[in-house]
Structures are given as structure tokens and as C-alpha cells.
């Protein structure tokens, strides 16, 4: 990015018109990926001068225990429902979970889920890191996930969404191909980096379960309706050019007994619809890079000339 500039220069403007057509496999119109955050929050984390972790003095019992529910209860309930309806996960992973509770990570791996990094812990923030420190957490992420699961991560969602101006350049340098930190589009697109190719993978804050339940204060059934409306719209628009729908989840929220049943109906709806390419973020990235990346760059150049 252009550090300090008013426009950070993350990507070129491409209006949602006249774009090169994205064609997903088998004529599907919307690529659907479910993204469980498998996280570990520390009970007594070191302090980052730029962001406080827990609201209360440590131990923040409710804050910590609520998130711990994910690993004891929520993950297992959520994962079974996803597998039952044929949805793999693309996991935003606090990689230290590999050390603390490998059972959860290995369960996801055995289900055919993909992992990308969500930092070391969701209580360690990137704000204030120098380049050497940021390289250390990227290298740690790659190594830790590979050691436990054999997978090589392709993507990044910054820990607790905390960035530095050099994050995107660095992850591209290490060979990662997608970032989930940019929310400007319903299709993947090229991101400007110093070297290599990096794309933005449409994630979503708006239909993230955390936003649904704690920003918009939805009931479980209202949230399920929201996901179905989001899907139906993106599936319809995808007739023109393939779209992406991400369902970002936290199993300490969606895996609660009053929410999981309504969520299961969403998966049932999407699986039965027939228009969804039910897949993983890395597969979407691979497909876009192989088939659509160059055309998107050309679209951006054409638009820039026309302006």
C-alpha cells in the first residue's frame, strides 16, 4: 500500500459493470465458502500498546469462557452439521490452536477443510510490529500449519483484523495468494503488491455471525434469513458473472444450541438450490488466478483509459 497517502492504493477501481465474465466450474453461478474461525484467545495476553485485548481485568471470565466454548462444544456441533450437508470449511486459524488443542485442527483437517492464517493468537495484534516481527508471525504460521496438517497455507486474515502497511506485500512475498481483509467487492480481484500476484477473496463482515448477533442483534432465525437472502441474490447476479459468498462463522456463536438448527436450514437451502459451487477459499483463488486474473487486470486498465 501507499503508506500515508489518502488513497492507500490497494487495488484499481473496477465498477460492477462490463467486467470480464467469471465462469465457475460446472456452470455454477456463486462460489460459496464457509469460513469457521478456529481460534485461541489467551486468558492473560501480553499488552499491545495500540489495542487492548479484554474489556475487563484478566481473567475476563465471560469473554474468555465464551470463546473457549468453541473448542469444547461449538466446533464439534457446527462441523458435524457442515459435513452432513457437504460443506467443507476454509478455516481462519489462530495457529497456536495447533499447539493448545490439536484435536480441533486435526478434526478439521480430516474433514477436508483448508487452513489459512489468522495470526498466532486472536489476542496478539500486528499493530506496531516492525518488518522482522511481521515476517516472524508469517513464517510461524506457515511452519505451524504445515507441521501439524501437512497443508501449505495460501491465505491470510489478519489476527483480529490488525494490519500494518506492509502486510499485503509480505504475504505475497511468502507465496500466499489471497487476502480476506478487503471488503470492496463480491468477486475476487487483483491487489497491488510489491512483488508477485495477490488477490482479494470476498470475505464478509456484514454476514459474519459476529456482526449478525452482536452488531445487528439478530435472532438466530433472522440471521438465517439474512444468509438465505444474501445467497439468493448473489446466485441470481452470478448468472451474468460468477460471484462469491462467504459465510464467516465463530462456533462459540453459531454452535450455540439456539442457533445451530436455524443455521442448518441455511445449509440445506444452499445445497438444494443447485447454483452453488460449494468449495474452499483456496480453490476459488486457484480458479480465479488461472482463469480470470489477467482479464480483471485488463478490465482495470480499460477503465483507467476511459476515465
Amino acid at each position: 500500500m501507499r503508506e500515508g497517502a489518502a488513497d492507500p492504493g490497494l487495488y484499481d477501481f473496477r465498477p460492477y459493470r462490463d467486467r470480464a465474465r467469471i465462469a465457475w466450474p460446472e456452470g455454477k453461478t456463486v462460489a460459496v465458502w464457509v469460513s469457521p474461525n478456529l481460534e485461541y484467545y489467551e486468558i492473560d495476553p501480553a499488552a499491545n500498546p495500540h489495542r487492548k485485548s479484554w474489556a475487563k481485568p484478566h481473567p475476563d471470565v465471560v469473554g474468555y469462557a465464551h470463546r473457549d466454548y468453541a473448542n469444547r462444544v461449538g466446533h464439534w456441533r457446527m462441523a458435524e452439521v457442515m459435513s452432513k450437508h457437504g460443506f467443507p470449511g476454509s478455516v481462519s486459524l489462530s495457529v497456536a490452536l495447533c499447539d493448545h488443542i490439536p484435536e480441533v485442527v486435526l478434526d478439521a483437517n480430516a474433514r477436508g477443510w483448508e487452513f489459512f492464517s489468522h495470526g498466532i493468537y486472536n489476542t496478539r495484534y500486528s499493530y506496531g510490529m516492525d518488518e522482522r516481527q511481521e515476517r516472524a508471525i508469517i513464517e510461524d504460521s506457515i511452519r505451524t500449519v504445515r507441521d501439524l496438517t501437512g497443508q501449505t497455507i495460501k491465505g491470510w486474515l489478519a489476527p483480529a483484523l490488525t494490519h500494518t502497511p506492509r502486510t499485503l506485500d509480505l504475504i505475497a512475498e511468502y507465496g500466499l495468494t489471497y487476502t480476506c481483509d478487503l471488503y470492496h467487492d463480491d468477486q475476487p480481484g487483483p491487489v497491488h503488491v510489491a512483488d508477485g500476484r495477490l488477490i482479494s477473496m470476498p470475505y464478509s463482515l456484514e454476514v459474519n455471525d459476529h456482526y449478525g448477533f452482536f452488531v445487528y442483534n439478530m435472532s438466530p432465525r433472522d440471521y438465517a434469513d439474512t444468509l438465505i437472502r444474501q445467497f439468493d441474490r448473489l446466485a441470481a447476479e452470478g448468472e451474468r458473472s460468477g460471484t462469491v459468498m462467504c459465510i464467516p462463522l465463530h462456533s462459540y456463536l453459531i454452535g450455540q444450541p439456539h442457533r445451530i438448527g436455524a443455521f442448518e436450514e441455511v445449509l440445506r437451502h444452499i445445497a438444494a438450490d443447485g447454483r452453488a459451487w460449494i468449495t474452499r477459499s483456496g480453490d476459488i483463488a486457484d480458479h480465479f488466478l488461472a482463469n480470470d486474473y489477467d482479464a480483471a487486470v485488463a478490465d482495470a486498465a480499460r477503465y483507467a483509459r476511459a476515465v
Binding site: H100, P102, G128, Q133
Partner: peptide, 16 residues
């Protein structure tokens, strides 16, 4: 500027 090196040390990062 950098963070205190201790910020990248994880003394409780282990099984359990």
C-alpha cells in the same frame, strides 16, 4: 518502531 520482543514470545503456547 517495533513492539517489545516479548510480544512475540508465547510462554504458555503448549498442549492444553
Amino acid at each position: 518502531m517495533a513492539l517489545d520482543p516479548a510480544y512475540l514470545e508465547y510462554p504458555r503456547r503448549a498442549r492444553g
